[in-house]
Simulated assay, not measured.
Amino acid sequence: MDFIFDCFFEDTFEKITRSGLQDRSSRRDVLDHLNAVIGGCSDGQNMHTEEVARLAVLSAVKYHREKMDANGDVCLMGKYHNILYIALRTCWEWGVRDSAVVVVLLEEIYTCEKTFERIFLGALFGTHAPHFIAGWRSDFRDQDENTRAMVYFLHHATSLGLQLPVLLAHVQDERMVRFIDIPIESCGKASPLRVAIQAGAPDLLLILLRYGAEPNPPDGGSSAVHALMDKLIERDRHYIYQDVSCLNILLRNLTLIEMPCEEGMFFLQKERFLVKYGALLLDKIIPKEQVFGIMPLKHLCRVRIRDLLRATNQLPDGIDTLRLPRKMQRYIDLMEE
């Protein structure tokens, strides 16, 4: 079976020019051909299609790695790199369940690109936007399909705790960052969570937080909650619904809204906070107790439980294992206020 896919990729790619897979329709043609081979092998060998697709993905990664090794460990790009996106789509379409294989593919993509924008951008902005933002077209039909694909890859990456080295400019050092927090290169190296906030996309923000995105992203930017409050006060108390929804969702993950405070300067900082964000308190956009008081115990427990589950890569699936009433599980999973 491995030999069949190795031959398929060698024969197919030999006939394609270096730039022959730049457009989505060309990648779709190869993918349709590959899907026919997967279906035929499944019938001929009496194997489940998902298992055959798994072998096809491994063969694609192997092909890419061999070409890269032959070029001094540098990706040849063009068709040799786009094979990874044919494999990515194969994973999604056939529902490959082996997280180890999915993670191997993601790691191979990251080796060349140092970002996962082709998974996240289409979900955040729709499938046409990436062409204008980054110069490539999404492999998914529409934003909904891209979002479901994003969740699929989030699930597999989180289940194995995928972390990758990221050079963080603000510390001038490499740090291990989880898949969900890897900065998006063409969006100023901002984390997916920060991009979702700037895009005013509460549905996407909720998905990212449910799957364990850091509410304070490690991308070196300012505090996400302060950035969102700054965005809200720009319109002189004419609040955009999507931005308010993003703030409500983000605040479910924080014990308090911290004020930048130097020792012995609390009252001065409090006064400055009120001057700048007082309208948000008056209009009940942010709860006063989350700035100057103490939030209800159930909220503090939710944040603590989520912090523990996030640290062990168990969001959101680990919530179902907690011996708690379903309503309480939904509260911890950010699905209820």
Results as ranks from 00 to 15, higher is better:
80 Y>D: 15
299 H>N: 03
118 R>D: 04
165 P>I: 13
26 S>W: 07
314 Q>W: 05
223 S>E: 12
75 C>M: 07
238 H>N: 11
334 L>P: 00
265 M>F: 08
23 D>A: 13
133 I>L: 08
286 I>H: 01
255 T>K: 06
62 K>M: 05
5 F>W: 02
249 I>M: 09
82 N>E: 12
81 H>G: 13
73 D>S: 12
102 V>E: 08
196 A>L: 14
55 L>F: 08
267 F>G: 02
186 S>W: 10
251 L>C: 02
123 A>E: 04
321 T>H: 13
299 H>S: 00
308 L>T: 10
45 Q>G: 04
68 M>I: 04
3 F>G: 07
47 M>G: 00
322 L>R: 00
77 M>S: 11
314 Q>I: 00
136 W>F: 14
73 D>K: 13
61 V>D: 03
9 F>Q: 03
219 D>W: 08
269 Q>P: 00
104 V>E: 11
7 C>D: 14
112 C>P: 00
165 P>H: 10
151 V>L: 09
111 T>H: 06
132 F>R: 15
7 C>I: 10
81 H>S: 11
169 A>C: 08
253 N>Y: 02
159 S>R: 10
247 L>C: 04
104 V>R: 12
207 I>F: 06
119 I>N: 00
190 A>V: 03
97 R>C: 08
121 L>D: 08
85 Y>W: 15
300 L>C: 10
54 R>Q: 07
44 G>Y: 09
49 T>D: 10
279 A>N: 07
150 M>G: 01
256 L>A: 12
331 Y>M: 05
44 G>D: 10
301 C>A: 11
82 N>W: 14
83 I>K: 02
286 I>A: 05
287 P>R: 03
253 N>L: 01
327 K>G: 06
229 M>Y: 04
286 I>N: 02
113 E>H: 06
205 L>C: 14
132 F>W: 12
26 S>C: 15
304 R>K: 12
46 N>F: 10
284 K>E: 15
44 G>Q: 08
223 S>M: 09
315 L>R: 07
97 R>Y: 05
225 V>T: 09
298 K>S: 13
258 E>V: 03
101 V>M: 04
306 R>N: 09
204 L>I: 12
188 G>Y: 13
42 S>Y: 04
209 L>N: 01
55 L>K: 09
267 F>V: 06
54 R>N: 06
222 S>T: 05
254 L>T: 00
156 H>N: 14
168 L>D: 07
156 H>K: 14
331 Y>Q: 03
248 N>V: 05
209 L>H: 01
6 D>L: 05
154 L>Q: 02
307 D>P: 00
133 I>M: 02
207 I>L: 15
148 R>S: 08
248 N>I: 01
172 Q>P: 00
14 E>D: 13
60 A>G: 15
313 N>H: 15
59 S>H: 03
143 Q>H: 01
107 E>H: 08
296 P>A: 04
213 A>P: 01
131 H>A: 13
336 E>I: 07
318 G>S: 11
271 E>V: 03
258 E>C: 08
21 L>C: 10
